[in-house]
């Protein structure tokens, strides 16, 4: 089951990237979360025909990746995995939107504009979300959630899920492997074993939860989760959010590429 192996690999890779050190990694997680969220909201606020106006939104992910020293490889791989879905959804539009528009004297279906718009929006949103993870990590996300006053109990539960995902994935992979070695069609699970296979893992999970709970109690857990340092955002973080906020707002207000093009066209004349 390549799914499980991929998932393990993917999570480990991003966890590792997030533990690097860079200008971006050192920023406060909340600053990165807010910037990325704001970026996404403004990005998707464009209407369905927006294409070239979206291009300035490329600056943010490029900056995050370059300054955060995140290699393009893992991002592109993940993006390529998602892209077919975005494309397939986008492709419906030329079929349903049969209006036309003219570009350089050529008549073009406006459905294709929607298609391009969706591909751009999708790719940018996905990339920036992945970059947030790759530069912040789950601990950073937890910290920003706490700063956003999300109840600690939920944060603790989220972190526990994250912590045990790799353990459970490995456990499931072992069970599947044992099954595959003795099955005719090792690619998927026969109906007779659905219950026993998943059920066994589930029972072990419940027992594990009990032991984890014991371990927590032995170290003084009484339903409250005490976190350590809660660093507050500093000057660089405000600068980061304000800077990108301004840039994104400016891009939304003015069609930068068109403006640039007009200046250039004027200069040529």
């Amino acid at each position: 089951m390549p799914n499980i192996v991929n998932a393990i690999y993917n999570i480990r890779q991003f966890d590792e990237l997030a533990r690097q050190d860079s200008l971006i990694h050192r920023l406060h997680p909340l600053a990165k979360l807010l910037a990325t969220l704001g970026y996404t909201v403004v990005l998707v606020s464009y209407d369905k025909y927006a294409t070239i106006a979206l291009l300035p939104f490329l600056f943010f992910p490029v900056f995050m990746a370059a300054a955060g020293r995140i290699p393009a490889g893992p991002l592109l791989k993940r993006l390529l995995y998602i892209e077919p879905m975005i494309i397939c959804v986008g492709l419906l539009n030329p079929l349903f939107d049969r209006g036309t528009t003219s570009i350089l004297g050529q008549t073009m279906s406006s459905g294709w504009l929607i298609f391009i718009s969706i591909v751009i929006k999708g790719s940018l949103a996905v990339t920036s979300a992945l970059l947030l993870m790759a530069t912040t990590g789950m601990d950073g996300i937890a910290l920003s959630l706490r700063k956003l006053k999300v109840p600690k109990i939920f944060v603790l539960q989220l972190m526990l899920t994250y912590r045990y995902i790799s353990v459970l994935l490995e456990e499931a992979a072992r069970a599947i492997q044992a099954y595959s070695l003795r099955a005719f069609n090792p690619k998927s699970l026969k109906r007779e074993v659905w219950g026993p296979m998943l059920g066994q893992i589930l029972l072990r999970t419940v027992d594990r939860a009990q032991r984890v709970y014991d371990a927590m109690c032995l170290r003084g857990f009484i339903g409250e989760y005490h976190t350590g340092k809660n660093p507050s955002p500093g000057f660089a973080d405000y600068l980061f959010v304000a800077g990108w906020g301004t840039f994104i707002a400016a891009s939304r207000a003015v069609n930068l590429p068109l403006w640039l093009g007009n200046i250039l066209a004027g200069a040529v004349k």
């Binding site: 937890a142 972190m159 994250y162 912590r163 353990v167 014991d214 371990a215 003084g220 009484i222 976190t227």
Partner: peptide, 19 residues
Amino acid sequence: DDQLFMTTVFDDVAFGPRS
């Protein structure tokens, strides 16, 4: 694995003292 339930070694070792 049952005892190390936090996401970093530091946080895990700190869980008791913080409690």
